[in-house]
């Protein structure tokens, strides 16, 4: 049963995902608390996107249990699954906007599918979403191929937020943005998180956004959660990969800046 008042948004237990004879996610357990901004870090190719796709049900798992707001895909009835899919929004690493639809049509697509609204209301809410992610209404009539990388990310975020989801999954939302735009994007996620009271599950490589927006961070290494907790916990972890990630040159300079 879909339970939106539960304290755990995501609950993973003993999760195993692999391709062929390669195990990418290896007996992983993880809880994401409802209402928090959760950051996931890990080496490139370490399986973050695969973990996300497994949570979303896009790649099959070999073993384990995935619960989102108390709904387990394996045992859920179709109605609960539909409800669940309405309650989440996903920003894919590559944006994944529908290339033959305009920006407005992209944002209105989920509304059209799930809600029974007049075209005028849809357009107005889409405009509101577009402005909330920092774009101008004039951008709404553009086609995805004509957008810049940063604009694509923003539109993808607006589409992910189209149905006012309870949880959004962001796969590297700030990668490929300049530091100023990335900072704005971080602030945007924070504001939206505060105004819309959503749970955010965010994959990122950006130490700055980990520091500024995430409530809790988990490091994925060798298919398992190597460390989990606040930024401070990351700096204290003794796991070799986590150490070199957070206490390498970039991590240290960040720490200095954070301290000063």
């Amino acid at each position: 049963m879909l339970d939106l008042n539960t304290s755990l948004a995501i609950r993973l237990n003993d999760l195993v995902v692999g391709f062929g004879d390669k195990i990418v996610i290896d007996h992983l357990a993880l809880d994401v608390v409802a209402g928090e901004i959760f950051g996931l870090v890990g080496a490139s190719g370490g399986g973050k996107s695969v973990l996300l796709r497994a949570i979303l049900g896009l790649v099959p798992k070999r073993q384990g249990r995935i619960e989102i707001f108390g709904v387990d895909r394996d045992s859920a009835n179709p109605h609960d699954l539909q409800e669940l899919e309405r309650r989440w929004g996903v920003l894919y690493q590559q944006g994944a906007l529908f290339s033959s639809l305009s920006v407005f049509q992209n944002i209105e697509f989920p509304m059209r599918e799930y809600l029974d609204l007049s075209p005028r209301t849809m357009r107005e809410v889409a405009t509101a979403k577009l402005e909330m992610v920092g774009l101008a209404p004039e951008d709404g009539d553009k086609l995805p191929a004509t957008l810049s990388g940063g604009m694509t990310k923003r539109v993808a975020l607006a589409r992910a937020l189209a149905l006012d989801p309870q949880i959004v999954f962001l796969d590297e939302p700030t990668s490929g943005l300049d530091p100023i735009a990335a900072g704005e994007f971080d602030a945007l996620i924070r504001t939206l998180h505060q105004t819309l009271k959503i749970t955010v599950f965010m994959i990122t490589h950006d130490l700055e956004s980990l520091r500024t927006v995430c409530d809790r961070i988990a490091a994925l290494a060798d298919g398992k959660i190597a460390a989990i907790g606040s930024m401070g916990a990351m700096f204290e972890s003794e796991h070799p990969w986590v150490r070199s990630y957070f206490r390498g040159d970039r991590g240290r300079s960040l720490l200095r800046r954070a301290a000063s």
Binding site: R120, R123, E124, T127, A128, E131, M132, P137, E138, G140, D141
Partner: peptide, 9 residues
Amino acid sequence: HETNRRGVS
């Protein structure tokens, strides 16, 4: 409240 100030195109 701040959005849709410029009217729908």
